[in-house]
Simulated scan of single mutants.
Amino acid sequence: MKMSSPLAEVPWSRLQGTEIFIAAMTHQAANARRHYHNAAHVQRLYWHAAVTFQLPYSRALDLAILTHDVIFDCRQDRELRSIDWLAAHLPDGEDDPDFLEAKRYIASTIDHRLTEHPEMVLLDLADFIDPKVSLENTDLLRKEARDLNGVAPEIFAMGCSSYLEGLHDRFKQGAAQLPATLLYIHTQICRGILNTRKTLHDACKQMERSYV
């Protein structure tokens, strides 16, 4: 998804125009090396909340969408530090009535395991439904790994392929947590993860042959 202005109008959210929305979106747009984990990714999740899933409004989920990747760098515990960022930018901090639920939503994106509250995981993985968008995202992630961490393309392809294999297994096992109305989308996401992994696996094989 090409990013418009980080403060452009988004669907579903009721935080737009607030200090925390402006701070989070501006922060996520500021680092040009964040090719994927940026304000465009947040905008995409709001679109999925409104269109793909047509979710009822939840301020806690709104906060989680906005800030789940607000911290994204080469250090560990990015999601936990994003939770800390959220607490620091809420007027009432951890006493905000929606903070704990937002925290749980953000924490669910650490390994993307479906729970009895699957909304954030589904939103974060919904781009896998569209093969074209998924491949575009993979290229953005490759550039991000290169520019943030100095990862070579062949190392990225191998590492991402392995990660997607584990992600598929974790996500597939969580199907029992979902209502019947979401099982078709769950299947689409699983298929998209596998297709993306196959593309990366084939790329690895091609790079191996080029070195022979």
Rank of each mutant, 00 (worst) to 15 (best):
A40E: 10
M3C: 14
A126I: 06
S162Q: 11
Y36P: 03
T67Y: 07
L141A: 02
A203M: 08
R104M: 09
T26H: 03
F53H: 01
A87N: 01
I83T: 00
F53D: 06
D169F: 09
A126V: 05
A8N: 08
F156D: 01
I110C: 07
C190A: 01
D169V: 02
Q76D: 13
S82F: 01
G174L: 00
A107D: 12
S58Q: 05
R34E: 02
M207A: 15
L141V: 07
S13A: 08
I110E: 13
D139I: 12
I155S: 05
E144R: 05
D98T: 08
L80T: 10
L100T: 10
R146H: 15
V42Q: 05
E154V: 12
N195L: 12
A176I: 09
A203T: 12
Q28E: 01
L140G: 09
F128Y: 15
I155E: 08
H112V: 00
E208Y: 15
M120P: 10
S4N: 06
H186G: 03
Q177N: 10
M3V: 11
T115Y: 13
I106K: 04
D169A: 12
L55W: 11
H41R: 07
P153E: 08
S162I: 13
A145E: 03
A49P: 00
L183I: 05
K132L: 14
I20V: 11
R197S: 02
Q43D: 15
I110F: 11
T181M: 04
R75H: 15
V212Y: 15
C160L: 04
A24N: 00
L148R: 09
